[in-house]
Write a protein that binds this DNA or RNA. Structure first.
Lengths: 194, 194
DNA sequence: GCGAATCTTGTCAATGATGACAATTTACGT
DNA sequence: ACGTAAATTGTCATCATTGACAAGATTCGC
């Protein structure tokens, strides 16, 4: 061997810079020159370490998805409905910068089947985890999954609306509603009428 | 005067073509040449009738927002919770092609304050209308607005998830949940405990 | 037919982003 | 110190997209 390889670290720097650019200008809006500038390197180095633009985009997508999948591996596993809804609302949909990047991912996923499938798998897993927690709490119940779906969809919609500057008059009330969705017994009666 | 002006009709054709392109390739992904091809006109005509690219984008945004605002002017005004939730779920978040264009609008809104404000106004109005319907149904209630918020956010999240291919096991159960959100009395008890 | 406003065609230069690559420098093992 | 693999610099041609415009054709009122 000769000179030691520092490629992996450089790649990380570059991807971090790329992510910052994406948060600021979006995928379509950031050029290799933008990334290079953000990373404090000449453009040719970015090309050298990360390949062409498509490679760079794919690398960042991988990084983001791996991070997302990792996040759910630290899932509490079980807990009170309080814990669950706090986890969903506060931890997953909290950081605004992250949310912007996530929306960028969604936008890409509109026209990328593989990415869409991978995003779907993550959200499905979240829903399943929430449903499993509910089942842990009480008896297993076939409708748990649909109520988990509702709770996550509500959190998702709330996060999007928050970004528009639309917030509920009382966030606590949304929490109460979310908690209620995660509580097995409060719906059963009404549901059976349908 | 001399030759009659046909600019307005041409503009409509061009914007329709642009909208089709946006649904297929997104705002950032469609070029003037794409629009011209879709409209069956040379690119120079597109430029002549609609101006530069920014003009074209703004014109389409206006068209889309006006259409959205118009849609809520046909709002039933009042009705049973059934009517409400059917309106929200089936009519607003139904058509997939429209949804894609809406997601494109959202994506633009990430970095366009004016557009974001205008989108926010539309969704706020939807929430207010739903809340007003609920107040019509029974007594006015301060929490109606927050439950309307929840119902719309849930519908929004459901629409997004549907696009990912994530659907609840039983759509009817989501409808039941949505109905419950729109029902004044089912939450009050739990809420006061908090 | 004629003038005038409008439409239509076609071409051009400027811009900006990308991919490619040659030439040079660095840092390590021996 | 020397060879070698890796890193670094800088430049170039290519391509797509946009904006601009000159020249011509159309359609109306008169």
């Amino acid at each position: 061997m000769a000179r030691p390889r520092i490629g992996q670290e450089r790649r990380e720097e570059i991807l971090a810079a790329f992510e910052a650019c994406v948060a600021r200008k979006g995928f379509a809006g950031t050029t290799l020159t933008d990334v290079a500038q953000e990373a404090g390197q000449p453009r040719s180095l970015v090309r050298y370490f990360i390949g062409n633009r498509a490679d760079m985009v794919n690398a960042l997508i991988d990084r983001l998805l791996l991070r997302g999948e990792e996040q759910f591996r630290q899932w509490p596993g079980h807990g009170t409905p309080e814990d669950m809804h706090r986890f969903v609302l506060d931890r997953i949909f909290a950081d605004q910068t992250t949310n912007i990047v996530i929306m960028e991912l969604w936008h890409l996923a509109l026209r990328d089947d593989a990415l869409r499938a991978r995003l779907a798998a993550i959200y499905k897993q979240v829903i399943l985890e929430v449903a499993a927690m509910m089942a842990d709490e009480n008896d297993p119940h076939p409708e748990a999954q649909d109520r988990a779906f509702s709770a996550v969809a509500l959190a998702f919609g709330t996060a999007f609306f928050r970004y528009l500057g639309i917030a509920p008059a009382s966030p606590d009330r949304i929490r109460a509603i979310s908690r209620q969705l995660l509580d097995q017994h409060s719906l059963s009666a009404q549901e059976l009428e349908t």
